[in-house]
C-alpha cells in the first residue's frame, strides 16, 4: 500500500541528516587521477623499464612533448567530465563532454599524422612484449575505482559515465607506454591507444551494472 504524500515527506524528513557538499568534483577527479597515476606508474615500472633516452626525447622534440601533453590533457579532462556527469544538470552528455572528446580526437589525430611524419625517428628501442595487454590490464583497476567513486554520486547517464571512466582510465597506461614502450606511430595507435576504446567499451557495459540511478 502506497503511503500518502505527507506520510512520505515525514518519513524522508525523519531520516534527514546533514550531507557533505559535493561540488568538489575537480578535487575528487584530481585525487582519482593522482592515485591512478601512482598505481599505473608503479605497475608499469614493475613490469619493465622505461624506454632509454625518453627524457631527452621529450626535451628535444617539441612535437613528441606536445603529443605527451595532449595525452595528459585527455586523461585529466575525461576524468573530470566523467565525475561531473554524475552530478545532475540539464545539458546533454554530448554538450558536457565536448572538450574531452575533442582532445581525444586530436590526440589520435596527432598519431595518425605521425604515420606520415613521425615526431621521433621510429625505433624498436624499448619494445615491450604484450604492451597492449598491459595497457588494458593496468587501466582496469583505475576504472573500477572510478566506478566506485561515481556510484556515490547521482549518475543519470550510466553508459556514458562508464565509457568516459573507461576512456580516462585507458588514457593513463596508454600515455605511459609513450615513454615505456617503443615509438612507432602505427604501433602506438594499435597497442597503446586502441585499448583505451576497449576499456571505454568495458566501462559502457559495466556502467549500467555497477552504477545505480538515484
Amino acid at each position: 500500500m502506497r503511503p500518502s504524500r505527507s506520510q512520505l515527506i515525514e518519513a524522508l524528513v525523519a531520516e534527514l541528516d546533514s550531507v557533505r557538499r559535493p561540488g568538489r568534483t575537480a578535487l575528487t577527479a584530481s585525487a582519482w587521477l593522482l592515485g591512478s597515476w601512482a598505481f599505473v606508474l608503479a605497475i608499469t615500472l614493475a613490469a619493465g623499464p622505461l624506454r632509454p633516452g625518453f627524457a631527452s626525447q621529450l626535451l628535444e622534440s617539441p612535437r613528441f612533448l606536445a603529443e605527451s601533453l595532449l595525452g595528459v590533457a585527455v586523461g585529466v579532462v575525461l576524468a573530470s567530465a566523467a565525475l561531473r556527469l554524475a552530478i545532475p544538470a540539464p545539458a546533454t552528455p554530448w554538450q558536457r563532454n565536448g572538450l574531452g572528446l575533442f582532445l581525444l580526437t586530436a590526440w589520435i589525430g596527432a598519431y595518425l599524422y605521425g604515420l606520415w611524419d613521425p615526431a621521433l625517428e621510429p625505433s624498436m628501442l624499448g619494445k615491450r612484449e604484450g604492451c597492449w595487454l598491459q595497457t588494458l590490464l593496468f587501466g582496469a583497476p583505475p576504472l573500477a575505482a572510478g566506478l566506485w567513486l561515481v556510484r556515490r554520486l547521482a549518475p543519470l547517464h550510466r553508459i556514458w559515465n562508464g565509457a568516459l571512466l573507461g576512456a580516462a582510465a585507458g588514457a593513463l597506461p596508454g600515455l605511459l607506454m609513450q615513454i615505456a614502450c617503443m615509438y612507432v606511430p602505427g604501433h602506438i595507435l594499435v597497442a597503446h591507444v586502441a585499448p583505451l576504446f576497449g576499456l571505454a567499451a568495458l566501462g559502457a557495459l559495466l556502467g549500467p551494472l555497477a552504477l545505480r540511478r538515484p
Binding site: R2, L8, G23, A86, P88, P90, P214
Partner: peptide, 26 residues
C-alpha cells in the same frame, strides 16, 4: 512520490553554488 524519493537520495549532489531548479528538474 518517486521524484521526492529521488531528490532525497541525490540531495548530496546538490551544489549550493549552482541554481536549484535545473538540478531538480533534471
Amino acid at each position: 512520490q518517486e521524484c521526492l524519493l529521488t531528490v532525497h537520495r541525490a540531495r548530496h549532489t546538490y551544489d549550493p553554488r549552482r541554481a536549484f531548479r535545473p538540478w531538480l528538474f533534471t
